[in-house]
C-alpha cells in the first residue's frame, strides 16, 4: 500500500502516469502467464496473455498474447507443461518490448486471475529493474472469490481449489489449458460466474 503510494508519487507524472489513475470500473483484464517454473523468484516468463472483460462479455477475440524470446532456464520439465519449445519462441520478443506492450494493453484496468499473485510477482520482478515500479493495478483474486462463495454455501467444507475442478464446478469450459491465452479466457469466464453483477454488465468490481 505504502509502496504503491510512494511509486505513484514518483511515477504519477511520468510517461506511465496513466497507470496510476483510478480505474473507471467498466473494464477488467484477465491475466495469465506461462513461466519456466513455479518459484516466483526464479521462474522466467515464456508467454503472457490478457483478455478484456467488458460489459459482461469476455472479448476473447480481442485478447493480447505475447511470446517472449527463449529464456535461459527453459528446460524439458517446463516444456512438458506449457508445450512451448525453444523453437516456438524463436520469433519471441525481448522482455522490455513485451512489458511495454503489456502495460499499454492493460492500462489501469483491474487485473483478474487465478492465483494471480504468482503472475504478478513474476511480472513485477521484470518491471522493477526495467521501469522502477510494480504493477499498480487493483487485483481480483479468483481463488479467494471462489473460496468465499464455497464457504458461504458450506461453511465447514474445504473447497477443492484445483483450477480444473473449480472450472468444472462453475460450469466453465476449460479452454486451452496451459496456454496463457486459454487460461486467461477461462479465468475471465470464471470471473463472470463468480460475479453475477459483472456478468449482466451492470456493476463494476
Amino acid at each position: 500500500m505504502l509502496k504503491r503510494l510512494v511509486q505513484k508519487r514518483r511515477h504519477g507524472n511520468g510517461p506511465y502516469g496513466h497507470l496510476f489513475q483510478a480505474p473507471d470500473g467498466h473494464e477488467l483484464m484477465a491475466l495469465d502467464c506461462e513461466t519456466t517454473g513455479l518459484d516466483p523468484r526464479r521462474a522466467e516468463l515464456v508467454s503472457v496473455a490478457a483478455v478484456p472483460i467488458r460489459g459482461g462479455r469476455v472479448c476473447a477475440g480481442a485478447a493480447l498474447e505475447l511470446h517472449l524470446a527463449a529464456p535461459a532456464s527453459l528446460d524439458g520439465e517446463s516444456i512438458c507443461i506449457h508445450r512451448l519449445r525453444g523453437v516456438d519462441l524463436a520469433q519471441g520478443i525481448q522482455v522490455r518490448e513485451a512489458l511495454e506492450k503489456l502495460l499499454a494493453f492493460i492500462g489501469n484496468r483491474p487485473l483478474v486471475g487465478w492465483c494471480v499473485d504468482f503472475d504478478l510477482a513474476v511480472i513485477n520482478r521484470y518491471l522493477r529493474p526495467a521501469l522502477g515500479f510494480e504493477l499498480p493495478n487493483p487485483v481480483v483474486e479468483l481463488s479467494a472469490l471462489f473460496r468465499k462463495r464455497e464457504h458461504y454455501r458450506s461453511p465447514n467444507g474445504l473447497p477443492d481449489l484445483r483450477f480444473e475442478q473449480v472450472a468444472g464446478k462453475l460450469g466453465v469450459p476449460v479452454i486451452g489449458r496451459h496456454t496463457a491465452r486459454g487460461d486467461a479466457t477461462t479465468a475471465a469466464l470464471m470471473y463472470l460466474k463468480l460475479n453475477p453483477m459483472a456478468a449482466t454488465g451492470q456493476g463494476d468490481l
Partner: peptide, 10 residues
Amino acid sequence: RLKAAMEMAF
C-alpha cells in the same frame, strides 16, 4: 478477422 472480434458471454 472473425476470431479477433468474437466475444463470449454467459
